[in-house]
Amino acid sequence: MSDRMVSAPVRTARADVLLASVGERGILCDFYDEAAADIYRDILHEDSWEAAEYAGRVRGTAGPVLELAAGTGRLTVPLLDLGREITALELSGAMLAILRERLADVPAALRDRCTVVQGDMSAFELDRRFGAVVISPGSINLLSEAQRSGLYASVREHLEPGGKFLLGVPEKDTGKPDTLERSQEIPGGSGRRYVLHARLVPAERAREVTICPADETADPFVVCTSRISFVDADQVGRELGEAGFDVLERVPLVFGGGRHQDVLLVAAPSGDR
């Protein structure tokens, strides 16, 4: 679920406080950098319902599939189960390393149908077209408006006639919550616990996220940061229309408890039905 430029991590106010308190033990990194890879893997929770919604709609297309911001492969492996050729594009080297490890554990018949490419989903050129292009929820919120425009243009250039663009987005704008800052503990699969701190920046329509170990004695004490833009299904739908797409479906992505906060938009180039 990532497609970040390799750059200096976001300096959040919370990160500065944490780093000052732990001294030389502190390491600041982007959540998708190599230093944070173990934390990302530890707290990543995958849900079969999400992959099932994507797979059900990819089945209605023909030809190879392009997955953008593939991350650690939460959609990649389920899509390979459909028997299709998959190109998984991801910019973060740390995420690619985890994805390759994961693919090494699947049967060769599946692995051989997957091509892994390092690239930026907001500006890519591949020497083929695809019957479907997919992006998992969360990734588009890490792009600026200009980057989203580049994404839509790149996708149009890589879709086969009749191809579909499937992208997960938040259902509603989350830029107006009750509090400007909040912290919560989150469990990792290893049993370790982490603290997630989120701070809103309303003027910039963004949220700064800081994640660190709950154990204040951890050495090294890795502080991960990221910046998330406010963008929801209505806004993305409008942007798709301006970019020459028609939104064909708007499907709630339903959690096990019957709730949903993300929407799967299924789009196609205008006039290409």
Rank of each mutant, 00 (worst) to 15 (best):
S190F: 03
G162Q: 03
A123M: 04
S149F: 05
G191D: 11
I135Y: 02
G131M: 08
I186M: 11
E157V: 02
V195Q: 07
P137M: 10
D120Y: 01
E185C: 10
P161K: 01
V117N: 06
I135E: 09
D178C: 07
A146F: 09
P161S: 01
E181Y: 00
S190N: 11
R128W: 05
P161E: 00
R113C: 01
M121P: 03
L196C: 12
G189A: 12
L110F: 00
R192F: 01
L143G: 09
G191S: 11
S154L: 10
E157A: 15
S139H: 02
R192L: 08
G189C: 06
S190T: 12
L143N: 13
V169T: 11
N141L: 09
L126G: 08
E185H: 08
S149G: 15
L180N: 03
S139M: 06
Y194F: 13
P170I: 00
L196Y: 11
Q184T: 11
K172M: 13
K176T: 14
K176G: 11
L166Y: 03
G175W: 04
R182F: 09
G168I: 11
Q184C: 11
S154C: 12
I140F: 10
I140D: 06
S136T: 06
F165K: 05
L180G: 14
R193E: 09
R148F: 07
R129F: 00
E125P: 03
Y194A: 07
E125D: 09
F165E: 14
Y194P: 05
I140W: 01
V117L: 07
A198Y: 02
L143H: 06
L110G: 03
G119Q: 07
D127K: 07
T174L: 09
G175H: 03
D173A: 12
A153F: 09
P161G: 03
Q184L: 12
Q184V: 12
C114L: 06
G119W: 02
G138K: 04
G188I: 05
L126V: 05
Q184R: 15
S122R: 14
E157P: 00
S136E: 11
F165H: 06
V169P: 00
R113E: 04
V133N: 03
G131W: 01
F130H: 07
Q147K: 15
K172Q: 12
G138D: 08
E160Q: 15
P187V: 10
D127I: 00
G119P: 05
L166H: 05
V117S: 07
G163Q: 08
Y194R: 01
L167Y: 05
Q118D: 08
E171R: 14
G138A: 06
